[in-house]
Design a protein around this nucleic acid. Structure first.
Lengths: 148, 148
DNA sequence: TCTGTACCTAGAGTTAGCTCTAAGTATTAT
DNA sequence: ATAATACTTAGAGCTAACTCTAGGTACAGA
C-alpha cells in the first residue's frame, strides 16, 4: 500500500507543510516519489511517523530524532548509542514528572485559596485563614513568596 | 531592603537581560529607579519574581502572566478571573502529567528492549523474544508501530 | 478544452523567549 | 584622577518548529 501526502495528512493530523519539512530535516529518508515528483508514502513510512511522534512527545528535538533514525539505519553497531538515548530520555522524563508534581502542588494551593477568596469576596481574608496559613507552611520553603 | 540588578541576578539565576526583558513585557510594574535610571528591586519585587517563576514553570506564557499581574493590581474585583486561571492551569497540568505517563511507558519499553538488544548484539532477536512481544502487546494499541 | 483540485519547490515569514551588541553613563576602589 | 566594573537604552539577532506564499506542474471530470 502507498499513500499520497493528502492521505497521510488525514491519517496523522500533521499538515502537508510539516510532512515536507520533516522530510527536508531528514526524518523520513525513505519516502519515494513517482516520475513527476509526487510523494508516495509506504506503511513503513507511516510507522516511522508514529515513532517520530512518540519521540517528539518525549521532548526530543528534530535533530536528535534525525540522529536516532541515522543510527537505526546504520544497524546493530549503534545499539549502545540508541540505548543511551532512551536511558537519558527516561531520566529526563522522570525529572520532568517530579517537577510537574511540585508545580501542581503550588497551583492547587492557589486554586483552593482563590476558591475561598471568591467565596468571601476578599483575598487577604482568605490568605489569613488559619487553614491556608497552615497549608502554605506545609507546602513551601519560603511561604511568603506565595502571597502574590 | 533594595537590590541592584546584579544582586537580583545572583539571587534568582536570571540574567540581567532577562530581568529587563520581563520588565519591558510588564511583569514587574513596581520596580523603582533612582535619579540616574538605575533599578532598585524591593523584597516585594523579589516575591513577584518567585511567583513569576512558578507560573512560568506551570506553562503560562509571559503575556498570560502579565494578565494575572494586571488582575492582581486591580484588586478583589478580579478574583473570579484569577480563580479561573488557576483552575484551567490545574486541569492542563493534570493532562500533561497523564500524557507524560503514557510517553514514559513507551520510552521505558524501548530502554528495556535496547538493553536486551545490546546484551545479545542484535535488535531483531531482542524484539522477537517472547517477553518483549508480550510487553509490546500490553503497552500499545498498534504494537508494530513501535518496531522502529 | 476548461475547471478544479492536489501536488510540487524554494524560500520568506512567524512566534516565543530570550540573548546579545553598541554606545554611552555611573559608581567604586586605589 | 584613573581604571575597572556595573549599569543604562534601543534595537538587532538567535533558535526551534513550524507556517505560509508564489509560481508552477499534473491530472481528473464535465
Amino acid at each position: 500500500m502507498s499513500y499520497s501526502i493528502g492521505e497521510v495528512v488525514k491519517k496523522t493530523g500533521l499538515s502537508a507543510h510539516t510532512l515536507r519539512y520533516y522530510e527536508k530535516e531528514g526524518l523520513l529518508p525513505f519516502v519515494k516519489k513517482n516520475a513527476s515528483g509526487v510523494r508516495a508514502y509506504s506503511d513503513e513510512d507511516l510507522r516511522w511517523l508514529t515513532m517520530i511522534e512518540c519521540l517528539k512527545d518525549s521532548g526530543l528535538q528534530i535533530k536528535e530524532i534525525r540522529q536516532y533514525i541515522e543510527w537505526f539505519n546504520e544497524g546493530d553497531s549503534t545499539l549502545p548509542q540508541r540505548l543511551s538515548l532512551f536511558e537519558n530520555r527516561r531520566k529526563i522524563l522522570e525529572k520532568e514528572m517530579a517537577r510537574l508534581t511540585v508545580v501542581m502542588n503550588k497551583i492547587r494551593y492557589k486554586e483552593l485559596l482563590y476558591r475561598e477568596a471568591v467565596r468571601v469576596g476578599n483575598l487577604d481574608v482568605a490568605t489569613n485563614e488559619r487553614r491556608f496559613q497552615h497549608l502554605k507552611k506545609k507546602l513551601f520553603e519560603s511561604p511568603d513568596d506565595f502571597d502574590k
